[in-house]
Design a binder for these strands. Structure first.
Lengths: 344, 344
DNA sequence: TTGAAAGCGTTACCAA
DNA sequence: TTGGTAACGCTTTCAA
């Protein structure tokens, strides 16, 4: 059943039927109802391909996932974020176009998308301090939303979690438990969030006049190896940390392993907290078992972030000239679980 | 630049230019070259939207990822598989449409895709023994390829790894090292591959006349919790297994944790092997650190499987009436790493 | 408030 | 081997 047939069956023109179905105001209400009923009855769905051609809109959003050689894994949070965003896309009739490309190929991927107008907008994930995608997408004139921020977070739209606050809180939580010997297993500081997280950690420590041990503040690509080795070094040096604050679940798994091998029980001898809101897709995996690390960002909060990001992104398509939208989200803290008692 | 302008600039008809560019045989070679050169020079790309309408083809492949409540995570292997498949799709001009939906919503998702013809074919992942998607997609007339097999693997196309052989080999490997007390941490047997893997394990054990301990053969949703608890029980019962063979990396992480907490060193006191080729997307995460579990399916082999699956799927679109294609792949074994010495 | 008709940019059929 | 032209199914402009 297509528009022509439907309109003929109603004794109306295609124009009127189209207008009625698309919510144009110049249709008599009675007509609209009649049309809607008929469309429903005939199980009519407008042909997406024809609509795309006629409107010039792709009715699709692009998600590009860069894969670097170092990455063993994809951030599990990616799935929740996409699930949330995809829900909104589907509701609004948009498709989600995914391309996973080698990191070197991302620019080409975006250019391709722009060239053949296969997407109406793009979601940008895991931004670096000086992310080249921002100027690129501006040049291409493709609407985009950054999940996270770059070093110069102006002139474009983003949604970010309050990383400084999240890490200040997480650190406070450990301090409240009596921990003083806290290690920070952070991501690379070329990523905006890593810098902010360190700041939050430092602020919380300073507020209690606890000086952080420089040897316990690490910053690297967040692999399990990294977490494992860092924890081994710290724990084997004697008088090691009683708590670890990790920037992702991946190194936290390594930390847990290092602790386990030394007979240290998580939640008893050593505490691990990790915060992973999906801003980093660098070698992350995830796990949130009881007795494992406590999280400061939950699956549902990440899904909600995905939804909100999608909403903003879609609104950007319709109003390309509006001022940039910038939203700072507070983290959905779910601490207090298995983080271990205070040291004596 | 569109076809009309290009053809006018060449003094040819749109028809001829279109034919030249699309490799139709009835074009004089000289003409074709001239057209191709002009297209190149003008940086002409056919408008995908118009082409879709004219041909009726969506030029897109659907990947539906069901999310169940139980899943904490997405299989990391999913990324490699998609990256491989996406490479082929991109090369052939196809888009990858991803939808992550709650498990209950998958049927609706497929019906939607079929109804508005938004995809030309569908990739089916993680099939169960009696997967309803197979008859559904047959009913919908949507070409599809199953990665894995259902219990009745006939009448449709699939690509699967030789699970029996993979597990026979992995078990042999452990037996060769001298292990006799081997635990099998398997997935649910509603999944075809889990049954096959058990068979492979049993065959290898039987061939050496080692009788498996029934208490050490587990089958469940592959979460870390599951692996952790199973390993705890086995290790705490006294005279526990010296080696674990896991059906996914997720439970392997739990096993490793249980071992660590008991002061057992992986690769010294206990061996862990896991095989994860991406056939299960149920709560999997992945990790392949040295000194961690050894894998019997590597990232590159999974990527290759993704590529091959994509090739087959695309070929199915063009020849809808050909007999079903069924390919059984051998696993790219990468054993021999950190699996631990034989017990005394 | 409704309708006729002109796009949108291809592909594909039928003639030449 | 090439060209004219009718689809493809919608949206949108212009008239009524």
């Amino acid at each position: 059943m297509n528009l022509k047939q439907l309109s003929e069956s109603l004794g109306l023109s295609q124009t009127t039927v189209s207008r009625a179905l698309n919510g144009y105001p110049e249709v008599r209400e009675e007509t609209r109802l009649r049309v809607q009923a008929a469309a429903e009855a005939a199980n009519y769905t407008p042909n997406a391909k024809a609509r795309r051609l006629a409107t010039g809109r792709a009715m699709a959003i692009g998600h590009v996932m860069p894969l670097t050689g170092k990455e063993e894994l994809v951030n599990p949070i990616f799935a929740d974020f996409i699930a949330g965003a995809g829900e909104i896309y589907a509701r609004e009739g948009y498709d989600l176009l995914l391309s996973m490309v080698p990191a070197e190929g991302t620019e080409a991927a975006y250019r391709q998308m722009a060239a053949n107008a296969s997407v109406d907008a793009v979601m940008v994930q895991a931004p670096t301090m000086d992310d080249p995608r921002v100027p690129l997408l501006q040049e291409l004139g493709l609407p985009f939303l950054v999940h996270g921020r770059t070093g110069a977070p102006d002139g474009y739209s983003w949604l970010d979690v309050a990383n400084i606050r999240a890490f200040r809180r997480a650190t406070d939580f450990l301090l409240d438990l009596g921990h003083r010997k806290i290690a920070l297993i952070n991501g690379q500081e070329t990523l905006d969030f890593a810098r902010r997280r360190r700041l939050g950690f430092e602020q919380a420590m300073a507020a209690r006049e606890v000086s952080p041990n420089a040897a316990w503040m690490r910053s690297d690509v967040m692999t399990e190896q990294y977490g494992y080795r860092a924890a081994c070094e710290m724990l084997d040096a004697g008088d090691g940390p009683t708590a670890f604050l990790a920037s992702s679940i991946i190194p936290a798994i390594g930390i847990r392993r290092a602790a386990g091998e030394r007979g240290l029980r998580i939640g008893r001898d050593v505490s691990i907290i990790c915060h992973d809101d999906g801003l980093s897709y660098m070698g992350n995996e995830g796990i949130s078992a009881p007795d494992g690390p406590a999280f400061t960002a939950t699956r549902s909060s990440i899904r909600a972030a995905g939804q909100r990001c999608a909403e903003i992104l879609l609104s950007l398509i319709d109003n390309p000239n509006q001022p940039a939208i910038q939203e700072l989200w507070d983290t959905d803290l779910s601490l207090g679980r298995s983080t271990g008692p205070a040291p004596a």
